[in-house]
Design a protein around this nucleic acid. Structure first.
Lengths: 332, 332
DNA sequence: AACGGATGCGCAAACGGTTGCGGTGGAAAA
DNA sequence: TTTTCCACCGCAACCGTTTGCGCATCCGTT
């Protein structure tokens, strides 16, 4: 089945292709009657513009690149969904790429995006991404904006979208402190990540604020569920035993719960649990886990909107902050 | 920064663009010396071919469309990751679209794919997709293959990728029966889905095989975690109480566990639990849940490979089956 | 010496749509 | 009646790459 083109329409209507082109987009140079005729025939034959020809001619790909470190089940699914939605709203299309948490993978992905001529890049950094020159090169050579979200690097000269990491952590710790918890195990992710740093800072800050002495043996960094589980196992041996646990992410929360349920410790009587979470995982257990909501949907939507504002030159902001809310459940 | 083109190279080398084009792809008409010269200059100036021009000229988009009903956190993340990997291996790019479990969304997505000129379509159907004419039209008009995976419709004339639904279910029920469980609550998804039908069939079949009378009050269809939770709640009131639960998916398993932990029933002493799962969720609880592995990674990789085999005309198969394995844990 | 074939490159059209500019015709203004 | 002006449409170039074909040049064969 041969695709029908503007030239075909022009031949049928005995007019010039340029007239058809203009008529289809309501150019004022074309009479209303002609516009109607053209559109009628176009609709009849089911004409649909050749996307490749347009993006070639206009030198616009209408593509947005999304690079994520890894497709974990907790945070990125709603992010992707929200971004895809927003991107399509703007008439663009989304290319999703995984860096597998490796710098090389991230560089490769940037090259793919450059090759495809994407008009904007949304990046959640890999844990190896100390140096961001590959992104700078992309931004400068392609003259396309790059927005960092969630896993960002501060002061790197890129616009960023994050949650109020310190505040979110602080409100979680405050919640625990108000309930009389005094030795709070803090579980944080890769210490290279800015979110880990910020959340740890919030943790320390809150402890100080509520007069709880900070104990280094209650601060753990874990890279996976298993490591979080091991950290909890170890922490439970400390005397006196911690009376609360804070997990900075869903992944770590899962590890925490695995570690706790092993030793049949009662929540919240013996130990309270709170996390920063999208809100899904905390419902897996009984009692439900209290959490500070870190909405992937909100982060995704905000990042995409930010990117389009930059593409259109509508803003010069350096960062946007997604608010978080404390959701108290039975675990605290 | 102006992008450098073949014409630029040609001007610099004082040759014809066609020569440059051929030299870059080692066309035998071009002498080895010329090839070397061209490639050297190209590398020096960092020439990278204009993707839009190529896909326009060759009438090939090198795009694959992936339409999923909804981005749930359980099954699709590994599927997407595997597909993206495979697609990129073949030098293609992936467009991910969500139908939001609605027929209209699915149709819209197919139109987007048609418009983008995708060369193949991977579809996991929405629950509303009884009629598949929109996919048939796409396949016939675009002359591009369509592969249905996981949420498929049998006998619809499309190549499909599924797991051995009956066998997987049967092995789960067999596992329970061998452990002396006799009243097994079966939780299934939307009855319109072919996977629900097949798994229910496997359930009935296994019961018959192991001499357990089928009881309609132990068969439930749930559309969400909440509904699964409610179904469990209700089933626990039946006397005698069921001594096992089978959940056909991760989502339902979560609901089951929520329902069970409410009433503090001991697993596996009072009730055994088994599910068909990707393998992640079953580790959330203690004891770990036994499951029949339904690997999203395997389904994704198989689907993508199948699609490329069809694109290249390397196969005329009607379906591919992904094997499943019983993973016995402490819950049974 | 004439011929045939291979080798190596250039020419130009083509893909589908867009766009600056130019031209025609008719109505209004002079 | 002539001039001006605008509404409406056509002409042709152009985007970057590919490709069929043609045309030299050179080598080996008869």
């Amino acid at each position: 089945m041969k695709k029908i083109t503007i030239k075909d329409l022009a031949k049928l209507l005995a007019v010039n292709p340029s007239t058809v082109s203009r008529a289809l987009k309501d150019h004022p140079d074309i009479s209303p009657e002609m516009r109607a005729r053209v559109k009628e025939v176009a609709a009849e034959l089911g004409y649909s513009p050749n996307w490749q020809a347009i993006s070639f001619r206009k030198r616009r790909s209408r593509l947005i690149g999304l690079i994520i470190p890894d497709m974990n089940m907790y945070f990125f699914p709603p992010v992707i969904k929200a971004i895809e939605r927003r991107v399509r709203q703007e008439g663009y299309n989304l290319i999703v790429l995984h860096s597998n948490n490796q710098l090389q993978g991230e560089k490769d992905n940037v090259d793919i995006c450059r090759h495809l001529g994407v008009e904007g890049l949304l990046v959640s950094l890999s844990t190896e991404s100390e140096n961001l020159d590959h992104l700078r090169r992309f931004r400068d050579q392609e003259e396309a904006p790059v927005v960092l979200f969630d896993r960002v690097k501060g002061n790197a000269g890129f616009p960023t979208v994050v949650i109020q990491d310190e505040i979110a952590t602080r409100s979680a710790i405050k919640h625990l402190a108000e309930r009389g918890r005094k030795s709070i195990l803090g579980l944080f992710g890769d210490p290279h990540l800015s979110i880990s740093k910020a959340r740890l800072a919030g943790y320390r800050q809150a402890l100080a604020e509520f007069g709880i002495p900070a104990r280094e043996d209650l601060i753990c960094h874990a890279y996976s569920e298993l490591e979080a589980q091991a950290a909890v196992r170890k922490a439970l041996l400390i005397t006196p035993r911690p009376d609360a646990i804070f997990a900075m992410s869903d992944e770590l929360l899962v590890g925490v719960m695995q570690g706790l349920s092993e030793s049949r410790i009662n929540i919240p009587d013996e130990i309270a649990v709170i996390a920063i979470s999208d809100g899904m995982a905390p419902t897996f257990w009984n009692p439900s886990i209290s959490f500070v909501e870190h909405s992937g949907t909100a982060v995704g939507a905000t990042s995409a909107s930010f990117l389009f504002d930059l593409i259109e030159g509508r803003t010069a902001e350096q960062s946007r902050i997604v608010p978080t809310y404390l959701m108290a459940k039975a675990s605290t």
